[in-house]
Amino acid sequence: MSSLRTRLRVPSGAAPGETVTIRTIATHPMQSGLMPGPDGVTPPRNLVERFHCSFNGRTLIEIDLGPGVSVDPYLEFDAVVHESGEFVFTWVETDGSRHIETAAITVG
């Protein structure tokens, strides 16, 4: 069971060929597995290990995240859109659980 909550900011519309900015944030502790908590016990590694975004089935960006990425990983990137369609966002955690979100954009 994933504890992940995510927020997206994707424009709902764009002109053909326009570059749009996509902002994503996932609420996640990004436990490195190296730092002891206040009780002195080191929680096991629990990261968003991977992020993937595609548009109409075409991969736009793929990121492997390490423990050096901040708590609540914020990822902002650009995409050029030529036609209407759907962005699919996937976050994969250390235990393999996946969180998938989609966002539609109308181009024209």
Binding site: T19, P73, L75, E76, F77
Partner: peptide, 8 residues
């Protein structure tokens, strides 16, 4: 592509 990533 635009090939930009902004993060923390």
């Amino acid at each position: 592509g635009p090939n930009r990533l902004s993060t923390r």
